[in-house]
Amino acid sequence: MSAPTAASPIDQRPLRGVLALFASRAGFYAFAALVAAFFALPMAWLVLAPFEAHPTFVAGLVQPTLDNFAVVFKNPDALASLRNSLVLAVGTMAVVVVCASLAAYALSRVKLPGRDITLYVLLLFSSVVTGSAAMVPIFVLVYDLHLINTLEGVILVLAGGTLPASIFILKDFMDSVPTSYEESARVFGAGPFRILKDVVAPIVRPGLVVIAVWSIVTVWGSFLTPFILLDKPSLLPASVEIYSYYDVGGSAKLPLIAAFALVYTLPVVVIYLIVQHRYGFRFFGGIKG
């Protein structure tokens, strides 16, 4: 059991009880330490290697330096890939936020037959299709639309894949907004777009932040879609760029890989932790049960 809360007056217990309590506490912290080590150890390299003058595969800090970052910022390909990642992330986010707001609002306020089950099925479907099951038809479709090797093509595909979850999350937020706000605006003469812009969107701003951050984080890290839809080196996002380093470069590129990995990872981790701290686990709040 949860040992720290089980601390009751020890002096009244027989010795065996005291020992059992210590054993359970020790077990509790041993479990916590084990879990912490399990999660931390693989990440040690990401934190240490970028600052090591001669990084190896073993995480360690013998000769601290910041030179590795200079390598990254002098590498035009690396910089271009970060810029591409940013374009993809922000572009997809913009499309998703606009489309999901409109759709979630309509779905929240107008009862359409089979609305909830459709949305749920789409949500499951999107996690399958954007995963990998439809990589071939998506490639062929984007090819036929002449969007192959364009960032726009990747944005549209990623937006289509992230929309169901975004609508699902946002609808949950919109369902909790009392309709009297809208009715009030309506009586005063406001139309649907104005109500959405003036009244609903500002009130569900936390929800908009959540889906914006969620789509940025998702797209920033996405690998497969840009990997199959882009092969022009100048268009590759950071996820594919860094893969090409360790795929072909091997250990020779370790200083670059280490620093680049940190520069590429840090933004999403920071954004995510801030949002997690401010809004808690509402990302998938609507899914359960």
């Binding site: 009392p178 009297s180 706000y181 009715e183 009030s184 309506r186 009586v187 005063f188 003469g189 406001a190 139309g191």
Partner: peptide, 14 residues
């Protein structure tokens, strides 16, 4: 509602 020129005060004020 927009065309009726009425004003409404809601229970929760809205």
């Amino acid at each position: 509602p927009a065309g009726r020129n009425v004003a409404m005060v809601f229970q929760d004020y809205a």
